[in-house]
Amino acid sequence: MTRRGASLAALLMVAAVVPLGAYLKLGTRVGSRTESIRWRQFPVRYFVTNTGTTGVSAQQFQTAVDRAFTTWHNVQTVDVSAQFVGFVQAPPFIEDGANVLGFLNRPDQDRTLAATTFTVDQTDGRLLESDIYFNTLFPWSTADAGGTDRYDVESIALHEIGHMLGLSHSALGETELIAGGRRVIAAESVMFPIAFSRGNISDRTLKADDLAGISDIYGTTTANRQLGSISGRVTKNANGVQGAHVVAFNTRTGALVGGFTLDSNGSFVIAGLSPGPHVLRAEPLDDGDLNSFFDTSFTVDLDFKATFHDKVVAVPKGGGARDVDIKVTPK
């Protein structure tokens, strides 16, 4: 099962939410420009629906969700926090001014483990409300070591809270087609749109890609002086490639961070990178359904081979390596 409906649900709730920048971030159109959607005040105050599901009480759910919030809070380059206010009868996905997380029975969403909705002030991208539901169509667990044949609440909460904070999906993973969908073979981002298998708790830990994404949105002044970025283009026969997945690999730290080309010029920006030499890899976005990343109006070029850039790119502290041109060839 997948959680790829998460952003789609969000997009349906707030029509103007669009992909922006790397990882992806979520954004909203404000006039002619695009603003990152983000919380302007912390802590984010949240409620939990006072209803459990088989094997997970509301209290156990809240404890697991709190650990996931704490994991995001502990990212050293940002200053985000959340505060549990209390249990409520109201289910999530009701626009009531309160951020509510809880279980919800959604048999119509039979491939969606969980989803996040937003209410955004479309004048400045400020988040006003965000709810997360966990679909009781699936079996859940909050066991420390993960529950056999059950999805891990904390892992999925970490992903959905990433959305709640303004991140969209990462494409940093490999999948295979199976009957009825895709199965993830391996991934290196909590924000990958397809969840690991039941019982797996690997996604309780944020990866470099997640850290870069959240740092790009909420990076502290100190972090912004320490981190850098890479920008450039992916081109094929001198023309821009839209929707290419670009991965930056720090050969010193081993950190992998992904981004996308988001216009017809093939332009990309990957920010939140730790300084050092990087190699770059561009690949077609073929490891997930395109609507997990972009809306249907966005054209994605899949006709090129996975390619490494022929230059080592050094990311400076507090600055950017610019004008990188990754040349790819048709398949």
Binding site: G146, L172, G173, E174, R183, V184, I185, A186, A187, E188, F196, S197, G199, N200, S202, K207, V247, F249, T251, R252, G254, L256, P277, V279, R281, F308
Partner: peptide, 22 residues
């Protein structure tokens, strides 16, 4: 330095994405 992904196994063992030598 090996670029690694986390495999979809209970142990989450590393899976090679590509390998670099500097």
């Amino acid at each position: 330095r090996t670029a690694q992904l986390t495999s979809n196994t209970p142990a989450g063992t590393p899976s090679t994405f590509f390998v670099t030598g500097s």
